[in-house]
Nucleic acid binder design. Structure first.
Lengths: 258, 258
DNA sequence: CGGTACATGTCGCGG
DNA sequence: CCGCGACGTGTACCG
């Protein structure tokens, strides 16, 4: 049995029946000229033109244009209803969670329908911020020599602190980890945690930002607050993590001073 | 002439030729069983399974699974290369901007190819933050009675201030507008502007956050800084904007105190 | 090309 | 279900 069904040159009503039959059990792709309307958090209209409407197995609706990464319109986890009217096929995808949010796609011409059956596949990703935090917790010396991790709990009462620990002199230290070049907002995040903890513990708290890079303004801001920046060679760490091997090179290989 | 070409039951090599022919001029959809690999900011692998690879006219590559809103893998504005090897079709989309970033999709089975030709269509959207700022500038009393807008320029030397003005007592006031429930990062953004302006002008500056809602932590943080929150009924404002009508109801209809 | 902020963000986690 | 923060965020705008 083939996993794919192709429908061409059929009436809007016949197409409606076919879609209805497979809705929720297969990926349905509708190629045709359509206009669309969205109403929800904002409000948008799209002119008549060639587009591709994907109705996924979980009833996510994606209206893609012929260019660009983002869909023109979309609706996640929706209730989908179909209507054939004056030879036009109207598809309405209504949000199950947000009331009043929906997209309506009106096909004046349908060029092809593809029904595609298959299973969900797994995906594994390495190199997220969580991965980095975990890696740094296993290798605290990478943050600074003599660093001791106190808490890997992230959800403290002040906020989601990445790593809390003590420096070699026993000074409380908050480490904020970023996998991207850090900006001012990241410095401010660190600042909020440091200020809150400082106030609670009534002792001085060190703030360290670990990232593959830092913007100019952000670095100035960081320095004005008395915090420190520690450059992390992210690529090498990700590579290490993917290779599943313990670091057998110098610890300093991964970290550089700003 | 039809806008759509359907290819089924063809060899990997023949398929490669067809894709090659239309690459960059049409939306190419490839339905089949494939595995994928991504390398770039992070690193990811995807198991063999039924997927849909979209190659758009601008050479954006999107690998969609049968569920979910986001693609499994993607590459925007890519250089796409094709290879037929042992009956498998291998498609590699390499980033033009970020060196070393690419996805590689390896099709073991191809169930269907759709070549779809068409033009880009226009889209209009109402209800963005910029729309809200503009609306509030036209109706400054909605922010607070007697409020006077000084500057609608966003890119000041301190940062991208939404609205700068004077309250009824002539006190300098920075208004930060959000179209979504405000969080701590939004309070921080406001804080940064207020502190910078405060320092420059050597006078007290009021900070006001206008949003349809605010998180608990964010509200505490805001209050601790001495800023104010003003709830805005976004839906009604968007509705007003879409109707293009002047508000003929009480101004307070749209705004509520926190 | 980098800095900055928005987005119908989406997604996942934890209370 | 909401709050909160990361994301391979993408995208636009501005210097």
């Amino acid at each position: 049995m083939s996993r794919v069904i192709v429908i061409q040159d059929d009436s809007a009503d016949a197409v409606k029946q076919a879609i209805s039959k497979y809705l929720g059990t297969a990926l349905i792709s509708i190629y045709g000229k359509c206009s669309a309307f969205y109403e929800g958090s904002a409000s948008a209209t799209t002119e008549l033109g060639e587009k591709l409407l994907l109705l996924k197995k979980d009833k996510t609706a994606l209206l893609h244009g012929l260019q660009g990464m983002k869909p023109i319109n979309w609706q996640t986890s929706s209730a989908i209803s179909l209507k054939a009217e004056n030879g036009e096929l109207i598809i309405r995808a209504e949000s199950r969670t947000k009331r009043g949010s929906y997209i309506e796609v009106r096909f004046s011409t349908i060029d092809a329908i593809i029904i595609y059956q298959g299973e969900k596949t797994q995906q594994s990703l390495v190199g997220s911020e969580a991965d980095l935090v975990e890696y740094l917790e296993r290798h605290p010396n990478l943050i600074m020599p003599g660093f001791q991790v106190l808490s890997k709990e992230r959800n403290t009462e002040f906020g989601y602190i990445d790593i809390l620990g003590l420096d070699r002199d026993g000074v409380l230290t908050i480490v904020e980890v970023k996998r991207r070049t850090a900006g001012t907002k990241d410095v401010q995040q660190l600042r909020r945690y440091v200020e809150a903890l400082c106030e609670q513990r009534r002792e001085s708290v060190r703030g360290v930002l670990v990232a593959p890079g830092i913007g100019f303004k952000a670095l100035n801001y960081l320095k004005s607050l008395g915090f420190e920046f520690k450059r992390a060679n992210l690529e090498k760490i990700v590579e290490e993590m993917r290779n599943q091997s313990r670091p057998n090179v110098s610890l300093e290989y991964f970290m550089e001073d700003s």
